[in-house]
């Protein structure tokens, strides 16, 4: 059967996934701040309230902790809530319910319950919103057993992974980079899923592996295209899932290329790059390494307001090009 594939933006793909989920399952509903007639701070829910009504596209008060708790309770008792945080930074207000309740409830109760809640987090810098509206906190939540944490990078993947998240019996946290919302890409119509826990090799290459997350996947692909002209052949892996991490895909790639560069927007220290590096260092791929592993991450500062400073805080294409070139040419 041929499935029509259209160009949709990342935000449209999310909206379509939520609409399909609600059409297919009466238990699915949306909760969040200003997601109704306003359409969400980033217009992700858009006009869904007109189609599904305010009972299923529920505006909440500005109560992140309480709202997250209500979503957890509803998930625990038979519903399938999708809870939108207006900004991922506001997860800090709801950490109690996410970390102590949603993540642990199944375990604490000996497997007697599950918490099929989906939480969506608009994340990342580049919008000039400064330090409290621009963070990348996925590694925080990735550190918590009981949660699944994903970072889809394309419209295709965000639709498929969101539908996988809604069907998942456990809590799934989706980090959506805000600069991706307007990015367009091919998206099949109808229902499909992209598995949680599987990385994707976006570009095959022989000389160097770049493991990137979210928006950095696109920057890494751009850098790889630029370096092709210099005869450097780069493999780009889109990690897609932070927890559970697909270490095997990374290990297999490094065995082939013998060089590893990790690129992610979050603060470099104690982040995803460390985990990816350790996965390689602890595996038999270690013996294949021809050079030290390199990490490119965010600077050790809050996200600044000034646009030039903001850009300089997180890896940009020229940074990736320079780091990959040095690594491939043995300058490190």
């Amino acid at each position: 059967m041929d499935v029509a594939v259209r160009e949709l933006s990342y935000a449209q793909a999310i909206q379509e996934a939520m609409a399909i989920a609600m059409e297919q399952d009466e238990r699915v509903f949306l909760m969040g701040e200003d997601i109704g007639v306003y359409g969400g701070a980033f217009q992700v829910t858009g006009d869904l309230v007109e189609r599904f009504g305010s009972e299923r596209v529920m505006d909440t008060p500005i109560s992140e902790l309480g709202g997250a708790g209500v979503a957890v309770g509803a998930a625990l008792t038979g519903l399938r809530p999708i809870f939108e945080f207006q900004f991922s930074d506001f997860a800090t207000l709801a950490m109690e319910q996410i970390v102590n309740q949603a993540a642990k409830m199944r375990f604490m109760l000996g497997g007697e319950v599950s918490v099929p809640v989906v939480m969506r987090f608009p994340a990342g810098s580049g919008t000039g919103a400064a330090a409290q509206h621009s963070q990348s906190l996925e590694a925080w939540l990735g550190h918590v057993p009981g949660l699944k944490v994903i970072q889809p990078a394309t419209p295709h993947d965000v639709k498929g992974m969101l539908l996988a998240a809604v069907a998942d019996p456990d809590p799934v946290m989706i980090f959506e980079h805000k600069l991706l919302y307007k990015m367009k890409g091919p998206v099949p119509e109808g229902h499909y899923t992209v598995p949680i826990g599987k990385a994707d090799v976006r570009r095959q290459g022989r000389d160097l592996t770049i493991v990137a997350t979210s928006i950095m996947v696109h920057k890494a692909l751009e850098a790889a295209a630029a370096l092709q002209a210099e005869g450097i052949d780069i493999e780009v892996i889109d990690l897609r899932t932070v927890r559970p991490m697909d270490k095997q895909t990374i290990i297999d790639s490094v065995k082939k290329t013998s060089r590893l560069l990790c690129v992610y927007e979050a603060v470099k220290t104690l982040g995803i790059g460390a985990e990816v590096s350790a996965a390689v260092a602890e595996s038999d791929a270690f013996d294949y390494l021809d050079a030290p592993i390199v990490r490119l991450g965010g600077a050790e500062i809050p996200i600044p307001y000034n646009p030039e400073l903001e850009k300089a805080t997180v890896p940009q294409v020229p940074d990736i090009v320079a780091a990959a070139r040095d690594l491939a040419k043995g300058k490190r």
Binding site: A74, L79, Q101, V113
Partner: peptide, 23 residues
Amino acid sequence: LGANGIVAGGIPIAVGAALAAKK
């Protein structure tokens, strides 16, 4: 649905259970 080690942790969860009952 469980005792809770976090003071007030169960309160929003009960509201969620009530929301499920209503829906």
